[in-house]
Design a protein around this nucleic acid. Structure first.
Length: 201
DNA sequence: CCCTTTGAAACAG
DNA sequence: CTGTTTCAAAGGG
């Protein structure tokens, strides 16, 4: 685990998944009083080079920093939980993350009423279940299916907030992390659904 | 402000 | 498969 400074408040760290060649980069803020980690963003990519580019693009310093004890513990647990999930253990990452003192500020992440409602409806879909864009629309009383897709596309924390559980009503897999069609992104979405016991076409 | 454009979609044909 | 419908959000006058 390498922690890297991103200025005053925000830190990032990254790791490689054990089960596959994917890298995960997480940005977060510390709450030293509550001894919690506030999750800002989770970024997935298939090549380590992209992580380096990402760091440079956001003008991040590459020097390693002191990591506080509670912080190290939380981040290690988080990394472990994500690896457990991909190794097929039955973990619901959104629920797990709360146990680990990782906070997700939904109102800050989804600051319009519409996007907040979309995410609230999504979070009712538990591990082992799936839903469709139109079903979410029904729940929040909206026919703006494509707008719902936009909210999910802009999910700052994929894997954790389970946008992968939303597929198209016609049975197709739909997009993932902004990407439609073939690519490692949709393969990953399929894989996660299979881990959760769902086999989409 | 108002107008236009743009969507990990859905539907009808 | 191909239009058409749909409406929230973002961007440009």
């Amino acid at each position: 685990m390498d922690k890297i400074d991103q200025g005053e408040k925000v830190s990032i760290f990254y790791f490689k998944l054990e089960e596959m060649d994917l890298y995960i980069l997480i940005s977060y803020e510390l709450d030293t009083k509550k001894k919690k980690v506030g999750l800002n963003r989770l970024f997935l990519c298939a090549e380590k080079e992209l992580i380096n580019k990402y760091i440079k693009r956001f003008n991040l310093a590459s020097s390693l920093l002191e990591v506080q004890d509670f912080e190290e513990q939380i981040l290690t647990n988080l990394e472990q939980a994500i690896n457990d999930y991909f190794s097929g253990k039955n973990v619901d990452l959104y629920e797990k993350v709360q146990e680990l003192n990782v906070e997700i500020d939904l109102k800050k992440m989804f600051n319009s009423e519409f996007s907040y409602n979309v995410i609230k409806a999504l979070l009712e879909i538990k591990n082992g279940e799936y839903t469709t864009y139109s079903h979410i629309g029904n729940k929040i009383n909206s026919k703006a299916y494509r707008a719902i897709g936009n909210v999910l596309k802009n999910n700052p924390v994929p894997l954790i907030i389970p946008c992968h559980r939303v597929i198209r009503k016609d049975g197709k897999i739909g997009g993932f992390m902004g990407i439609e069609g073939n690519g490692w992104e949709t393969d990953l979405k399929k894989k996660m659904l299979m881990i959760e016991g769902i086999s989409p076409n």
